[in-house]
Amino acid sequence: MTEIFLWLSITFYGAGFISHVLTRKGSRRVLQRVSTYILILALAFLTIVLALRIMETGHAPMAGRFETLLFFSWSIAVLNTILLFRYRLRTTDTLTIPVIFLALLLAAFSDSSVYRLPLVLKTGWFEIHVVTSFFAYALFTLAAAGGALYLLKEKTASDTELGIYQNITYRSILWGFTFFSGSMLLGAIWGYLAWGSYWLWESKSAASLLLWFYYVGVLHTRMLKGWRGKTVSAMAIIGFALVMFTYLGVSIFLKSSHGM
């Protein structure tokens, strides 16, 4: 059942992206509406997948690559929907939908076996630590989308449009940084309660530290006039690469006690 809804969601995100590209080229209202409905349906299917998985495992979707990729995709999709309904903004879809699509595709080909959650992970501190960190990753992805659009359209778009992209980038980084800092605090509390140390010198924690300092740097560029615009946009894209390194790179290529 989970697999059926997962493939439905992947198909609808694929179709949603194609319709979005067609909408961008033309300006037919009907097509715009259809494209929006397709993406809403895709999110609905993805939500069903998550709900089914939670019912199957009995815990928040955070154990293993399959579950975290689902949650990562869902977080970006929810942010997209918020942008759509709150700001009537769909331009970032050009980059966020492919990320969701690829993450779901990777999930579809990942091991979806249900694993026992070790006793030490059965705590609310861990659940909220993971949830906040994935929301942060999703926000950093949105920031990268804003940055990429700024760089792609710098020469053709109006100042107002470019201002929107800069605002998306900066606000997403600020919110993402808040979620990420919160996630690190929650992880620190959990670490202290679980094994007596709020900090561990291991790959995943170190990668989180580098990500945190990177975005500290990016946020400070707001005060440097020469660094805004192009530089901040480029930094947001590099930030997304660092997010991928922290989330997937460390778990796949390095040894870490954090696992996935």
Binding site: L210, F213, Y214, H220, L254
Partner: peptide
């Protein structure tokens, strides 16, 4: 503020190297 940005980026590069060393030098 420029110093804060430069230091943040230097720390990022340093910890990136450290992340790899933590995994390769158990």
């Amino acid at each position: 503020t420029r110093l804060a940005v430069v230091l943040s980026l230097l720390i990022t590069i340093d910890v990136l190297t450290g992340t790899l060393l933590l995994s390769s030098s158990p």
